[in-house]
Design a protein around this nucleic acid. Structure first.
Lengths: 224, 224
DNA sequence: CTATATTTGCGTAAATAGTACGCATAATAT
DNA sequence: ATATTATGCGTACTATTTACGCAAATATAG
């Protein structure tokens, strides 16, 4: 029998609502790092795949319904966990706004959304994992469509625009942005209008799923 | 003590020479898959990081001097290894042509370069790992400069052109390609000329390292 | 009730980048 | 000499991106 290691999975799950990008953290119940905030995750069981492990841990610890999940990176440095050689396979997840409500009721392990610019101190090397996940999120928007996994089923165009502006960290020209998105033919304009208080009410849009996943497969290059 | 797994690293190392992209394979000496070809790799020792493990295995099994190495993906499905629960962290590597000579002398484990379109049957799920690595290689050339890690220090422009044509799997217009590369200011034209038998001799070029890594950092979008 | 602020929606001109070629030049092979 | 092969430079055409003007529909302040 060869030298063995303990294997965990951790998830960086992003959500977007009202111009804010947030991430799910859980408060640890046990040592090490008892009471510290950490990414949801835990040990992989002997009869489950890595993806199954992440989904199980997410459902146990946060109750959130994940909309998109992909492997991010594997962290295996010596000394990253005081319990010994623990290697963690990190995942990257996105959820839709309605999942925001779910977590409020789930207090089993105390899970909370934190806006990404006001994170508390994190356990283990989770700060590093989070940073890499954020880079991935920001990188993704330049080479594939994003939004379907983060926005509600129906949304005003300005929601999509704000999502991009937030992720890019700068303003974008609404008119050119709309032209670009329109040329991709990825949005369906609905008949409904919605008013957000002041200003002219706007149409609601939804993603055309077929077209959306076609684009994702092709790998669009999306220069805003 | 929690449930544990065995941890391995595997490397998909690409090299490029004379219009051919090749990958290093080693012939297995022991069961399982004795005498089958496989990606170089092996068990991670208890006192080394993942990167150290790949570099050690590569040097032990192939003697090749790796020029670039990044983590690719982690494979942890149940049943991927007959020895039990073995999780493999795969790496993606690139080497320069001069490393081609090195391996010829290293027969310890019998390591060989195989052109990527004439691979033998591979052990474990290494075919799948290879496929993902190849996609990564092909994907990389559209969003960051590539070539420095694969070409000799000095090379005629046609080498770079052929590399791109090979990776893209189609012909490219030399004149437009040169215009594009020139506009990136990433090449230094040397005074030397080189003749390849027939045809007009061409200047030798070298990558401007400073500029090259700047571009890589920015993440260019490189539509050929 | 009117004026102003706010947000959406449509359009057009200028600048930039990408594509498709033509053709001269410098070597080797016949 | 003449053909063949590979390099090198240029130019016209097309598509995409960027910058910005302005009208329309609503809420709110006075």
């Amino acid at each position: 029998m060869k030298n063995t290691v303990q294997l965990t999975v951790d998830a960086v799950v992003f959500g977007y609502e009202a111009g804010n990008i947030s991430v799910i953290l859980v408060k640890r119940k046990y040592e090490p790092y008892k009471n510290a905030w950490a990414l949801p995750g835990g040990f992989v069981l002997e009869n489950e795949n890595l993806e199954q492990a992440v989904e199980r841990e997410l459902s146990e610890e946060t109750g959130v319904k994940i909309n998109y999940l992909e492997q991010l990176y594997t962290f295996g440095d010596l000394g990253r966990d005081p319990r010994g050689r623990v290697v963690s396979v990190a995942y990257f997840g996105l959820v839709k706004p309605n999942a925001f409500k779910l977590q409020a009721s789930t207090d089993a392990e105390q899970a909370e959304w934190f806006p990404i610019n006001t994170l508390p101190k994190l356990a283990f090397d989770h700060k590093k994992i989070f940073k890499i996940a954020l880079e991935r999120l920001q990188g993704k928007i330049t080479y594939e469509p994003i939004g379907f996994e983060l926005l509600d089923k129906k949304f005003p165009f300005s929601d999509l625009e704000k999502l991009y502006a937030t992720l890019l960290g700068r303003e974008i020209d609404r008119r050119n942005f709309k032209k670009k998105i329109t040329s991709l033919k990825v949005l369906d304009e609905l008949d409904e209008k919605v008013s957000k208080g002041r200003g002219r009410p706007g149409s609601l849009f939804s993603f055309n799923q077929k077209r959306y996943f076609e684009l994702k497969k092709e790998g669009i290059i999306f220069e805003i």
